[in-house]
Simulated assay, not measured.
Amino acid sequence: MAKEIKEMRIAVTGAASGIGSVIANELSSLGARVAICDKNAERVQAFTADHEDIFTSVGNVSNETDVIDFFSNVEAKLGGLDALINNAGIAGPTTNLEEFNFADWQETISVNLNGAFLCSKEAIPMLRASGGGSIINIGSTSSFFGTPLRSAYSATKWALIGLTKTWAMEYGHENIRVNAICPGSVNGPRIERVINKEADERDTDPSVVKEAYLNQTSMQTFIDPEEIVGMVKYLLSPIAQKVSGQAIAIDGHTESLSQVRIPREDS
């Protein structure tokens, strides 16, 4: 029988701030036993002070040793695992292909893609030992569209969908479900940084870029972290026990991620 969230042991990566922290806090409040990791030691310390019931760890998901240590600690502290939420990720550079620094490309791939691979690889034996479970990858609307000036980010988010569907096929017979949640632009400091970087790259005002982002969706809106949390709770719940291999968008219906068009000056 599928478990309720209050009966679960859940790991959330990249969760000392932002969307991950909202997810971890909500799942803990529902009675789940939660463990998080994050590479930012100061944020982990601050999160720990406010969340005594959540096991916290400093670690980089792109570092295999850190990942192995984290899941070893999860086993020791929680006694097993019922769900993994691969939330850790970075925005990567905002620039065109010719000016893209290869080191920045590698870092984005390493965190966003290698991190999900390494964490899922460690989680699978633990989920199997629990009689099944769930992996949720946090994708993006960039998982479905080209995203100008965001080559590395777009590549990783497309790849996550491929991994989601592949792992769902590999482990479905063991009652392990794998899904992806693909948010649009999420209200908060991160999207503001992305908008400001793109405005700098295009030599225009951030308000122009923000308006263009809003106009990419039918509902002309950004989403809130709580809406992502709602989908996480659904996918972890017994009512979703037959849902696997899906990439579910929460984005106000993205029509395209076309380029911001800056009017040219008359020559």
Rank of each mutant, 00 (worst) to 15 (best):
K6M: 03
M8N: 07
M8P: 04
A16E: 02
S17F: 04
S17Y: 02
G20A: 11
S21F: 08
A24L: 06
N25K: 06
A32S: 15
R33A: 15
A35L: 12
D50R: 10
D50Q: 15
E52Y: 04
E52C: 02
E52W: 03
V58K: 05
V61E: 10
V61Y: 10
D66E: 13
F70L: 03
F70R: 01
N73F: 04
V74I: 14
E75M: 01
L81C: 06
A83G: 13
A83M: 14
G92Y: 04
T95D: 11
E99R: 12
F100I: 07
A103G: 05
D104G: 12
D104N: 14
W105I: 09
W105S: 11
W105N: 11
T108F: 08
L113W: 11
F117K: 14
F117I: 15
L118R: 13
E122N: 14
P125Q: 05
L127C: 08
G131D: 15
S134T: 15
N137M: 05
T156S: 10
A159Q: 10
I161A: 07
T164V: 01
T164N: 04
T164C: 07
K165A: 00
T166C: 08
T166L: 07
T166I: 01
E170R: 04
Y171Q: 05
H173K: 12
I191Q: 10
N196F: 01
R202P: 01
R202G: 00
P206D: 04
V209T: 10
N215F: 05
T217W: 06
T217P: 08
M219I: 05
F222C: 06
E226T: 13
E227R: 03
V229F: 09
G230Q: 09
M231V: 14
V232A: 07
K233S: 05
K233H: 07
Y234C: 06
A240N: 12
V243I: 14
G245V: 04
I248R: 00
I250F: 00
G252W: 02
E255M: 13
R264I: 04
R264C: 01
D266C: 02
S267R: 12
